[in-house]
Design a protein around this nucleic acid. Structure first.
Lengths: 178, 178
DNA sequence: TGATGCATGTAATCCGTTACATGATTCA
DNA sequence: TGAATCATGTAACGGATTACATGCATCA
């Protein structure tokens, strides 16, 4: 899936600027399973407008550059619907963290601990972001499902990490607690 | 993390050809959290050899092209150790599947079901692959941890999917079971 | 006064995938 | 006979990130 389809997806629940789309991707439910930078969003939006899949309206603002508010057209909805009606490709999961954990014989215990703490922080942040989405009021029908899926997966990961961390600490300080 | 480091990681548990490295990445524990194609592995290996991080030995074979067996050097081990001793970047997770589920208002129930079944198949295959790794005999120290992590996450996902699937079937056929 | 948020955009660059090219052997 | 496995490699292409460029308003 490309950034164009992603933009259509975000716009399907209401008009937004490129900046706002980026925020939605970063802070909304999308953040769990998608990434996109300005460098890909802005060109995609321009392209979509050129093809009539979205409309643009410039909103004047004092000081700041004009805000360009994009809205999806019926043709855009159609394209979106067709794009997501094919059986999706495999999920892609890349983890430097697990690579490091697998090769832990080359890493000091201190680094291991720091890496696990960082991973825990990331997972918990993701979990919190999902928790903040009020699914009942969410513009998208599948919000509840996606939130449940994310929560289940992240919670499972956190649990394993906490176990592993406790084990590491036990090895490091056989008598005293941290 | 790049393909070069990945190759060093695989070679750290024993010599291998480019072809064998690809297989290891596809079928071993790595498969859960990493991807790489021949188009990136072969050039990476050539480059690593040029920098003295690995050695090459050509093994003659009847019919097939000479097999090039790569082995990591002390310098390579050093580079690897340094590469994985930094705190890793965030995991990257991309899922067309969840995108589709989130926007399910544009998808027919039949497609939903097919997509869920496909996802289930993928997850189960990943789970089976992890299950086949005999961690106790695995060359890498962290095998057990990575396997536990993968199993926990995948099992959680499978569980949520089965629930959702049952719910969909109940809605589709209110009286009869499938 | 300095960071952060709002707001848009482009160009260079990177990193990797896909497709192509080649070819013998073995198994069904 | 046709598919799969073994085996290596290159070139074209794609897709996105990073860094750069600009600039006001607000908050601490």
């Amino acid at each position: 899936m490309n950034v164009r389809t992603l933009c259509l997806g975000v716009l399907s629940s209401g008009e937004a600027s490129g900046y706002a789309i980026k925020k939605e991707i970063e802070e909304g439910l999308f953040s769990h399973f998608i990434d996109a930078s300005y460098g890909s969003i802005y060109p995609a939006l321009t392209q979509l407008a050129g093809e009539g899949l979205v409309t643009v309206r410039a909103e004047e603002q004092s000081g700041k550059p004009d805000k360009k508010v994009y809205a999806i057209t019926p043709k855009g909805v159609d394209t979106l619907a067709r794009s997501i009606s094919v059986i999706p490709g495999r999920d892609k999961y890349k983890s430097e963290f697990l690579f490091q954990m697998l090769l832990q014989e080359y890493v000091t215990p201190a680094t291991m601990l720091a890496a696990i703490d960082k991973q825990l922080t990331d997972l918990l942040a993701d979990l919190a972001r999902i928790g903040e989405c009020k699914c009942a009021e969410h513009p998208h029908a599948g919000a509840r499902f996606v939130a449940d899926y994310g929560k289940a997966v992240l919670t499972a990961a956190v649990s394993v990490l906490n176990d592993k961390k406790a084990e590491l600490l036990r090895q490091a300080t056989p008598q005293a607690a941290e």
